[in-house]
């Protein structure tokens, strides 16, 4: 068994320990004897929708995000859309998440177009949403997985989902998509968008395992259940966020 993971724009979108998500996927595969290859793809390199089992895109600094717009729209947009529509497992965090929607509107009304792959948009508002976040995911529950997601968020953009779009989770503590409608993130086919940055997958092993097993099933691997991993340390870190203040 082997998984090919694409890390999109690792030199531009690498804020807040985004590396942790890849380390987690790679280690959890390794501990189970699943081979895993991570390919960084950045500006000027082509992206093919059928070349990867998992795609990851993180968040970036505004200055650097502007640089990748041309490349993203002109060279990678259509292939990315096709990857999403053909059920490739795709995780996007923060800035990467916002890029999948229709647009990002600055406070001064200026709009940056998004890829428009999923029906949502984002508007910047004064004051950033910063802090620990806990959310409960009906989607994970429907997969018979631990439904509690924990993380840290830091964003000025408020994301509003279209009416037919399913949020990844409901906020229990923190801001989530926009700080007012209790939604956090998005799930569409096998694509997940979230504002939980950095150690999202390390602290949410159920989510990481869902990505790995979904990617393997999509390859046609016949597997009942992934071998167990001792997640006591992750559990302690999760407990801390759920119980602090």
């Amino acid at each position: 068994m082997k998984l090919k993971i694409c890390h999109l724009y690792p030199d531009l979108l690498n804020l807040y320990g985004d590396r942790g998500n890849l380390i987690t996927l790679e280690r959890r595969c390794y501990w189970r004897g699943i081979e895993c290859e991570i390919e960084p793809i950045s500006i000027g390199q082509s992206f093919r929708h059928d070349a990867y089992d998992i795609v990851f895109m993180g968040g970036g600094q505004d200055h650097e995000q502007n640089l990748l717009f041309n490349d993203l729209f002109e060279h990678k947009g259509p292939q990315l859309r096709q990857a999403v529509e053909s059920d490739v497992v795709f995780l996007c965090v923060c800035g990467g998440y916002q890029l999948l929607g229709h647009y990002y509107e600055e406070q001064n009304g200026e709009r940056a177009e998004g890829l428009g792959i999923i029906d949502f948009h984002t508007k910047a508002e004064p004051g950033r949403i910063i802090g620990d976040i806990v959310a409960e995911s009906d989607f994970l529950r429907s997969q018979q997985l631990d439904p509690i997601l924990v993380g840290f968020e830091n964003h000025a953009g408020r994301t509003w989902l279209g009416s037919g779009v399913q949020p990844l989770a409901r906020v229990v503590k923190g801001g989530g998509n926009n700080g007012s409608d209790s939604t956090e993130g998005v799930i569409y086919r096998h694509t997940i968008g979230t504002y939980m940055h950095g150690s999202f997958l390390p602290k949410n092993p159920a989510m990481a395992d869902w990505m790995i097993s979904t990617a393997l099933q999509r390859q046609g691997q016949n597997l009942q259940k992934l071998p167990e991993i001792d997640d006591e340390l992750a559990e302690n870190a999760r407990k801390y966020i759920q119980t602090c203040k």
Partner: peptide, 20 residues
Amino acid sequence: VRRADMALRLQYAGKDKQDL
């Protein structure tokens, strides 16, 4: 205060639980 996060990081970096 965030020792659990640090321990988790070290586990992923290759430390066995019993060496923490």
